[in-house]
Design a protein around this nucleic acid. Structure first.
Lengths: 203, 203, 203, 203
DNA sequence: CATGAATGAGCTTTCATTCAT
DNA sequence: AATGAATGAAAGCTCATTCAT
């Protein structure tokens, strides 16, 4: 005999957030398909049916996790932008490292997400309709700053943006699982950008 | 409508290769779980049962695709190593770009693979038993070369290896889908390593 | 054509029992492998997926059917034990005949089960972990009773137990399918134990 | 490139017998469904395709195994019949024990067979068309002998036949897997028929 | 006489989703 | 707000059988 009526402890807002948090971790770890509603429900302490009280479809839940995460991450990165390109880069990478330290599932989810969007036709369609301005603007903004301060040539803009995107993805996909390796990679990147990592061969 | 029994044209060697090639493309695109035996069989022009004539389990097929791809890629990258660190880097990145040009599914599969190995417990277990020496040695060799030629400080070794790994993963996961963006990112990386991308701010 | 969602009339307890009852009949008739989830689901009026709402694996279902049946049968047989060996034997065989009359699938399942446990490695492993004390104790108890009343020599104990086991299995495997033949065999056994079936040859 | 033409060592007659022998063991152990053509081919050292050179269908192979086994067993049992019922019984049970000692798969197959015939509609149909006269006649003959010698009452004929059938099946299904237990059961049966196992209670 | 490539149907199991309660 | 009974589709895999070679 299940208890009827509204459970005493139930708080929709808070339950919803618990679902989103568990979902981010599971999606980050196992991917979209690899995360069953059942596993999610178990993690949250609900049944699969209850999930549908909060989200119409698994896809909608995934989307909401994405938007939450994206917002949280870029709020932090944007706050780290400074007066020069190199200082901003340093700040942004440090901020990324800090985020990864506090909650590794943030970066892991975003990396996992890029894969799932490519793999899943259905997910791809929905993501195509999202507003990605913020993400694009962020890298473009960094480059613009570098050109303004004279740190970058205007002609190297696209190249630098592509480079930043590549490095970011490498950090997320490659080393966000281990704090130590993440630290090392971040230090390497900064040192390289400062021109202090490599010099011409001895001869 | 093919009939029962052995088809006239059957050639085991060639069919096996067709399976592996189709599998690499599908695994690269849709991942391990996202690639059903059915989809693979359809792509090759067989039934799912026939696949088991060649591979005992889906996992074995995946493994074989991996080993084939890994071998092919590192044969090419190792051939591109030169006398100095910077020349080797340039050569290796160009070789990678060439490979990606000829058959994008090679890099895409390897990127896809890293994700699947993390997501799939079963895949992870099997991969743990594989010999990854070659992959590890490759980056370590590049760094040793740089130290020998004086291009790198010995103390920066670990940092540089982590950086190379990060950049490689970024290239594979981030931009191997588009030739143009891949080109741009490669050029950016080379220019950055040459110290010709960034300079101190004007003031 | 039932629709999706929970049917109005659903009653878990009763459905579960219907599954177990149908399963016993099918397992008795067709064996473990010969009984497909599909056939069982059809017999109960469900889909195969619904079975997994009640049992995690086919094997668990089989086990539960076994325990139910075993308990039911031995409850009846033990109740038939009397003051002397010969009266107990008569009572137990009559009880067995009665059970077989009421629901032939009980004995048939147990006979079928012994075969399946030998045939199926997986089934054998699980059954090895079960507690078979009750079954063993039952025959041992009968023999002890016979020795106590002087009906049996103590030295014939093991032989008599083996004989009882053999006769029981013969009844179950050989003639439980036909009431008439079962009756005849039971009568023959009793008469034989009473010493009224065979006498020395005429000469 | 498979070797073409007739393999040097091939001897149809002998290969056929090897198939039948392996088949009897596998069918006895795992049953009809539980024995795959593949497993049988492996045991014999052939491929599944080759089996079809000797038998049109799995079912035909099974049938042939049955007829071979049945003939072999009853040749032996009939040879053990003596002048009186009790001596015949003793002889037949000893013969059965000897057979079981020499090749346990004989009795095991026959026990396994009865189950499979009941479980498998297709098998049942084919067995219904077989001539079971010999098996039936054998028990009837024993009973007739007992009546002739005065060891049995004519009125107890059907009952005794049912009893013999029950005991035989019990021996085969229950204890043919272990020589020791088989021996014990055989001794118990003989002693019981001799009237030397049970006596009235002490009062 | 024998191989081995291939089919098509079947199996157990998992899953997203629905909906009466 | 939440449960849990149920569906229907799909998955990986096995199998008896066929037949070109």
């Amino acid at each position: 005999m299940p208890r009827l009526g509204r459970p005493a402890a139930a708080n929709a807002q808070e339950t919803r957030q618990r679902i989103l948090d568990s979902a981010r971790k599971l999606f980050a770890d196992k991917g979209y398909d690899g995360t069953s509603n059942r596993a999610l429900a178990d993690a949250v302490g609900l049944t699969t049916g209850a999930l549908y009280h909060y989200f119409d479809r698994k896809l909608d839940l995934y989307l909401e996790v994405y938007e939450d995460t994206q917002r949280h991450v870029y709020d932090n990165l944007e706050a780290a932008v400074a007066d020069t390109f190199i200082d901003s880069l340093r700040g942004v990478l440090e901020a990324a490292h800090g985020l990864n330290n506090d909650d590794p599932s943030l970066a892991q989810f975003l990396g996992s997400c890029r894969v799932d969007v490519q793999r899943h036709a259905e997910l791809g369609e929905v993501f195509a309709t999202l507003d990605h301005t913020r993400q694009n603007d962020f890298f473009a903004g960094l480059v613009r700053l570098g050109v303004k301060t004279g740190e970058l040539d205007a002609g190297d803009g696209a190249r630098t943006a592509a480079l930043l995107r590549t490095v970011t993805i490498g950090l997320v996909d490659g080393v966000s699982g281990s704090q130590a390796r993440h630290r090392e990679a971040v230090d390497g990147i900064i040192q390289l950008f400062e021109g202090k990592l490599v010099r011409p061969p001895a001869t």
